[in-house]
Design a protein around this nucleic acid. Sequence first.
DNA 1: ACAATATGTAAAGTTTAATTAACATTATGT
DNA 2: ACATAATGTTAATTAAACTTTACATATTGT
Lengths: 77, 77
Amino acid sequence: MYQFGIISNQVYLLRAERRWSQTDLAKELDVTRQTIAAIENNKFIPSLELAFAIAHVFDKKINEVFIFKPYEEDEEE
Amino acid sequence: MYQFGIISNQVYLLRAERRWSQTDLAKELDVTRQTIAAIENNKFIPSLELAFAIAHVFDKKINEVFIFKPYEEDEEE
DNA sequence: ACAATATGTAAAGTTTAATTAACATTATGT
DNA sequence: ACATAATGTTAATTAAACTTTACATATTGT
């Protein structure tokens, strides 16, 4: 799949607001701490399921936590 | 990662509204037709990137296209 | 009826998210 | 200063998204 834009996220900020450690959040989501670290440090993009779960524990909408910036649009056949 | 809910989607409906074929949509997104079919038929859940791209081509928000229903919440240590 | 398009599906292979384990560095509390 | 908690990071493995190829069936148009 071609790249259509870039995805950034607010996980670090939301977590910091709540004074949660990566470990706290990881436990809440039942993933490993490394998964949280990787997402925060943009090592990889979470699955849609995990993205929804993250938004849910922060009581946010998914697009408030994960920001998609599509590249400038050009028509293509 | 544990399951926290179920994800359904409106891809078939949005595509039908626009009278697009799976092939049309696949080309627009630069994925294969089988990927579209698999998503519509709940064979798998798209990546966050692809989910955003799909919402984008339909001019919808991601949570309008992909619906997350979390399971009933129970506290856990 | 025929041709062309649309959709379902399956197998084998690639890519990437996510796990597990491990170790290093930085910050916090006493 | 010391212990403990928090974070960065890496390597090896597993799981799942996605591709490619292929074939079957269903639908639509003429």
